[in-house]
Design a binder for these strands. Sequence first.
RNA 1: GCGCCUGUAGCUCAGCUGGAUAGAGCAUCGGCCUUCUAAGCCGGCGGUCGCAGGUUCGAAUCCUGCCGGGCGCGCCA
Length: 585
Amino acid sequence: MQDHIAELLRAALEQVAAGPFPTLEIPGRIGIERTRDAAHGDFASNVAMASAKSARANPRQIAEAIIAALPASPQVEKVEIAGPGFINFFLTRDAATAVVGAVLDAGAAYGRASEPTGRRVMVEFVSANPNGPLHVGHGRGAALGDCIANLLEAAGHEIAREYYVNDAGRQMDILAASIWVRYLELHQVSVNFPTGGYQGEYVRQIARDLDDAHGNRFVQSAGAILDGLGHDAPAGDKDAFVDGLIARMKALLGDGFAVVHAAGLDSQLADIRDDLEGFGIVYDRWFSEASLVVDGAVEHALERLKASGHTVLRDGALWLKSSEMGDEKDRVLVRANGAYTYFATDIAYHLNKLERGFDTLVNVWGADHHGYIPRMRAAIEALTGSDEPLVVRLSQFVSLFRAGEKVGMSTRAGEFVTLRELRGEVGVDAARFFYVMRSSDQPLDFDLALATSQSNDNPVYYIQYAHARICSVFQQAADAGVAYDEQAGRAALGLLTEAHETALMGLLSSYPERVQQAAAQFAPNIVANALRDVADQFHSYYNAHRFLLADDPARTQARLTLVSAVRQVLANGLGLLGVSAPESM
RNA sequence: GCGCCUGUAGCUCAGCUGGAUAGAGCAUCGGCCUUCUAAGCCGGCGGUCGCAGGUUCGAAUCCUGCCGGGCGCGCCA
């Protein structure tokens, strides 16, 4: 419809420029927007005001000339000048009600792009270290990433979801050492638990499983373990102590280290996978960081970077000269001791994504990683000549409140609230909706008491209730012996002239635009807001008018047809958010 | 110190890539259930859009400076 109006305006502008206002320059893009107030019609254009300068006339005079030159359209009822020079378009009843048929014809596809774009987009999200359960902060990234993937798919892109498994780093070694110490406790070997270790109960469980599977295979004496290791905090440095412990463990256990390491990794990965599936998220692939080292992908990436001329050897280490590409300083790729940095393997992973044919790489990261963005951009630019393929969305912190008190979230201290606990308490629907209903740039206060309470404080219920209410209306119709006849309803749509009905149809027709906008901005909260608007208008309509009218079958069918379309849009939007659309509540 | 995010009603937040009278929810005050689910609706109260400049016919929105809040600045991951 905007396109149609734009064509009408362009035709009119050409005439105006050829006649009364020869200096008028026709803008490349003619601004047309939906009006906020029904009194201003359905669509408004500011083109008269925008061209006031080039036409050297006041906007209202230009608007008058434009309207005089405007071609007639079967879809436009009338056109008015308003305010400082807005041109307001009022649609005919038929043009306004057409959206109902459009929704019903498209069904689940309404709001989705009709043609594939041919673009391949990789959405990588969560990618938390598998050294413990996911907590509520990861949950936001999970919900956000999954919804963004849904949106991009709706926008016509081919998408893939991926989880990058950090199975190669020091964090995983620390988990292995933590498991080992718990295992030793089971065998009465007295080694104090390292200050820098992971203290969660899940570590003890892995140790017990290890004991069941391997008996005393990994037992060593306290003396052999601690001799010459130095002191843990507070007397010594806790990081140095843990690193020393890991080195000692590798020396004493030999191949056994890999067994303990793998026990930790496998256990946590399985747990995370199960957790996310319970949250409605299924990945296309779990990509191992360690595999990049093994199969030479890191070397390959480093060669590419060297060939680009953006690297330098300094102090025995290989650096990416990222400061030449917007980063605040250069970054180490290969340490003086020959070990790859996390950055180097991460670059290899991103190169791998590009080589698999993905045009756009969307990464959803926690806000604490924002300092990492410039160096990643620099790396992509060094590899491809442009940082354009990389899109990073940050999710700001989640603070959890229980009974008005902030809940601590330290992984090391084991006092965090897990995503699994959260799902159990508030359910998947409420959790997912809460996570994405705010802009991801906004820190989120997640109040468990609020989300748990069955009151209307919970915004997800409001939308689901609208859907359930519509289902209930159809149930009532069936119970009353009123057969729903969509064809009759479509034919009678012209009877829907109430303000509530016009407003509802306007919202239905703007829904696809809002989905596309949400996709373009990687912002699922836009869909959440659109749904709230539809639900709001529906509840209002429901209270103002009855749908089942014994003495007016035509209007009854028309209204049922309208609310059927509303139900479809609610279901589609909730689907994009990964929230269910219940038939009853 | 530098960088990113952020500042809108008592509280939590929207505000559609500059538009017409700045909107919701919660809280508070008052109405609406013999009729399709009251998990709902209608109305009242409540705002110098952090502050100061600038661009523009027009600024909560764009630019600059200042003030406040969050986060980040490793040869860690």
